[in-house]
């Protein structure tokens, strides 16, 4: 050990894993690749040349319509939903200091879904549905904290367990609401809930989703340092000068908002919030200055690609994308679990 003193002049590592240009370049490639897949795949497979033509407003009108009116809005929507879910998952994982946390697992999505479902059934307009979904998500989060507090001390593992129970309870409420809903709307509601971008009431809001995602990343970024400190636990964070009460409350609300935006647009899509932050951590480490923006951008790309597959695998039938993210997510998570033995990522 004493030998180390001779190496003290070595320069500090600025990036734990890949260098920054590679990271930015890689992210742009991932985003471009997923968007191209999203443009190509679907009910009709389009080759890249005709896509380029359509993008320049040339060539057959049908293809221009498909590209501009169907696929691009769909890609924007998928990107924003995936990004918001991944961001929300990343936040909940720090707040609970547990790698298994995500809005779907904890019942935050469930709260948003119940509220949104009730609002649909009451015939509220889109913004009413969205507002209520946020309230539902925030209420579910508050209830999660309250129930955990009432049964004992608030510790990350107890929060996780309470969240899992709440998620099952809320999914029973969803089933109940579906059973009570009238026949004609049932199919639509069911597909929306299973996680599908096709029935999105938020199609009109697609233009809003992407700016919302980018804004969310920008708003969170200044807090990345404090989130890093929070990884060492609340007391250490306090002793390092972080106002933990204010910070965690703000972050819970922010995660609820991100979840609500995603759920109103695409229903209950699981695994994106769970898997994407892990993928990012394995690549660049857990430093939130890198993790937050990358989780948003990679999460968006993942959902765009998954949605492209959902549209094309059994075309002309469309699969709920939530089914696909689960099919991708389960083996991916098991793979991460196996790798974690070597890297220590999930060890505790």
């Amino acid at each position: 050990m004493g030998l180390e003193t001779t190496r003290q002049r070595e320069r500090p590592p600025l990036f734990a894993h890949p260098p920054l240009p590679l990271l930015i370049g890689g992210t742009i490639l991932i985003m471009a690749g997923s968007c191209l897949t999203g443009l190509m795949l679907g009910g009709v497979a389009l080759p890249p040349p005709s896509i380029l033509e359509a993008l320049r407003h040339e060539g057959p009108v049908v293809i221009q319509t498909i590209v501009w009116k169907l696929r691009i809005p769909r890609i924007l929507l998928a990107f924003s939903v995936g990004g918001l879910l991944a961001l929300s998952g990343a936040l909940l994982q720090v707040l609970l200091r547990n790698p298994l946390a995500d809005p779907y697992v904890l019942g935050v999505s469930g709260g948003a879904a119940v509220a949104a479902l009730l609002s649909f059934m009451a015939g509220l307009p889109l913004y009413g549905v969205m507002g209520n979904a946020f309230l539902g998500a925030a209420l579910a989060t508050a209830l999660l904290l309250l129930l955990t507090r009432l049964t004992g001390p608030i510790t990350p593992i107890r929060l996780l367990l309470t969240g899992i129970i709440m998620a099952s309870g809320l999914s029973a409420v969803v089933t109940l609401l579906l059973a009570l809903s009238p026949e004609p709307t049932l199919h639509t509601l069911l597909f929306w809930l299973m996680g599908s971008l096709a029935y999105s009431p938020g199609m009109v809001a697609a233009g809003m989703g992407l700016p919302a995602l980018l804004l969310a990343i920008l708003l969170l970024w200044p807090f990345a340092g404090e989130l890093n400190v929070l990884l060492r636990g609340v007391e250490t964070a306090q002793s390092l000068g972080v106002h933990t009460g204010r910070l965690t409350l703000g972050l819970y609300l922010f995660a609820s908002l991100c979840t609500a935006l995603a759920v109103t647009q695409a229903g209950m899509i699981g695994f994106v919030g769970l898997i994407v932050p892990h993928l990012v951590r394995m690549t660049v480490g857990a430093d939130h200055r890198k993790l937050l923006p990358l989780a948003g951008l990679w999460g968006g790309s993942l959902l765009v690609a998954a949605d492209a597959l959902a549209r094309s695998l059994l075309a002309p039938r469309e699969l709920p994308v939530g089914v696909l993210t689960a099919f991708l997510g389960v083996p991916l998570f098991l793979l991460l679990l196996a790798r974690s033995n070597r890297t220590g990522i999930l060890r505790s």
Partner: peptide
Amino acid sequence: LLQDNEPGLPLTVFETALLGRHPHLGLWG
């Protein structure tokens, strides 16, 4: 220096020690 620390999610050893600089850093950390 507390007696126990939550295991939490992993930063590297260097990143963890760097957290000690948090109160000295500017707004963007």
